[in-house]
Design a protein around this nucleic acid. Structure first.
Ligand SMILES: NC(=O)c1ccc[n+]([C@@H]2O[C@H](COP(=O)([O-])OP(=O)(O)OC[C@H]3O[C@@H](n4cnc5c(N)ncnc54)[C@H](O)[C@@H]3O)[C@@H](O)[C@H]2O)c1
Ligand SMILES: NC(=O)c1ccc[n+]([C@@H]2O[C@H](COP(=O)([O-])OP(=O)(O)OC[C@H]3O[C@@H](n4cnc5c(N)ncnc54)[C@H](O)[C@@H]3O)[C@@H](O)[C@H]2O)c1
Lengths: 230, 230
DNA sequence: AGGCGCTTGTGAAGACGTGCACAAATCGCG
DNA sequence: CGCGATTTGTGCACGTCTTCACAAGCGCCT
């Protein structure tokens, strides 16, 4: 389930603040989900909560980390050390959440050799050597969209089976390779859509305006955590 | 629908390459979705495709941009001009996709006054003045998680009703305020989960291993665009 | 030892999203 | 003018996700 990482983060917070057990309601609150949903998710893991008490925080962390495959620190290669790539390379969230940047790659010879956060940028053509030295599980693409497909092909060619793509384009990959996309513009446009919807609703509370303004109510947008109480 | 921005991007690509009309199948391919799903989405907009021909690219772009509320160029404030904030401030994807950065804000006095991409960083306490000058629709939070809730409160206080949050934490906001979250670590962990699952499957093709390894098959992860053919 | 309050785990119902398959509609061509 | 090729729009069925509600279980307090 895609919610497991969110639970994990909430659990780590709880562990740091000294909690040894959590109720499903407490954890659900911290993760911003329904408590029944959380219990159902956790029961899928075969997890052991104790009725009347709750879940053991430490045990649950271990369980979720195991299921997510975080018991081994996975190696990540970052391709494209530009504007965004720099920020990602300097991000400590990689290391603290179970990942390790194995290499920084770029096609720009000007960048090759530059050191960022203790890592030296290598040329993209060195990817095969990098992959030969250690098993790369995940590739992160932070190149312009025009180069993304080519980079993806190169990653797949050296055995990468999971790709996180920041370029605004769809990638074609063979079966068995997972791709997840993060697109800032899409997020903003979804928010803009909600803005537009809210504006229309407040402007015309009762009757509908133009044919287009009066959308057949309630277009759903998944993954939005709208209005989590105060 | 959350897929509209994806269609829009694909349509812009098509328009640039000279296409005047698209079939649902062609557009669906470019956007990485099922053609029936696309047609159903588009029919929700009350859109006019012509049977036997397809959709008019220009008209469809206008329609989707209208529905997404992109006819007006919305003002965005970016709070937290650190590692990630710098990258976002220098990103041209804002302007090219219908948004305009109205202000860069940070709490660090060292950063205040710095110019990035033609914009001068202001202090977070100047937020009320910024909001007074023009209507801010969207706030982007790129501060550490510890500060995110406070920043969100400040944004809400000046009338921001949509927030894009890059900090790894859940935000509490009043009803009517939309929050979307982008968390790099969560994306990586979902990929890691798939890696783990794939590894288990290939290692034990037939019988299940430990109780935990043999998950009750097929945990679903939404939004993943797995295996889009070659 | 027994009862009471609290919490988990889950059955069932409903909402929702997805994809197939096909009828209706439009265009181009003979 | 009519026919066939093509493509949209959608009814329908299916699977999934979500949520409520409640019985079963556990620990604590008396
Ligand atoms: N900057 C942001 O805040 C931001 C936000 C969201 C999405 N994005 C997307 O992320 C991508 C990168 O953005 P950016 O601002 O860092 O762009 P950028 O131009 O600053 O950096 C791109 C880097 O990729 C390298 N590159 C180009 N082709 C390559 C190849 N074939 N192999 C390896 N490296 C190659 C370039 O040398 C450059 O260093 C873009 O697709 C952009 O749309 C950026
Ligand atoms: N760097 C990345 O690649 C990356 C990727 C994903 C998520 N994130 C998340 O984005 C956030 C920012 O990351 P970063 O690497 O840029 O961190 P950073 O420490 O480099 O930058 C944080 C900035 O926020 C400012 N700030 C702190 N408190 C503030 C407040 N109350 N009001 C206004 N500004 C304030 C700081 O002065 C600093 O400039 C973090 O939550 C991080 O987890 C970062």
């Amino acid at each position: 389930m895609a919610r497991l990482p969110e639970y994990l983060r909430a659990l780590h917070n709880l562990a740091e603040t000294g909690h040894e057990t959590v109720s499903s309601e407490g954890l659900a609150n911290a993760a911003g989900v329904n408590s029944a949903k959380l219990r159902k998710d956790l029961s899928q893991l075969g997890s052991y909560g104790t009725r009347g008490v709750g879940y053991d925080v430490g045990l649950l962390i271990d369980q979720i980390e195991y299921v997510l495959g975080l018991t081994q620190r996975r190696a990540v290669v970052l391709v494209g050390v530009g504007n965004l790539g720099h920020a990602l390379a300097g991000y400590d969230g990689f290391a603290s959440r179970g990942f390790r940047i194995a290499a920084l790659l770029d096609a720009d010879q000007e960048l090759v050799g530059e050191e960022i956060n203790g890592l030296v940028v290598q040329h993209i053509d060195d990817l095969p050597q990098v992959a030969a030295e250690e098993s790369i599980a995940i590739g992160v693409i932070a190149t312009p969209a025009a180069a993304a497909q080519r980079v993806a092909d190169q990653l797949v060619a050296v055995g990468v089976t999971s790709i996180l793509n920041f370029a605004p384009c769809v990638l074609s990959v063979p079966e068995g390779v997972d791709v997840r996309k993060v697109d800032l513009a899409i997020e903003l446009q979804i928010l803009s859509f909600h803005e537009h919807r809210k504006a229309s609703l407040t402007a015309l509370p009762a009757a509908g305006g133009s044919a287009l303004t009066a959308l057949p109510g309630g277009l759903a947008v998944t993954e939005s955590q709208e209005a989590i109480g105060t």
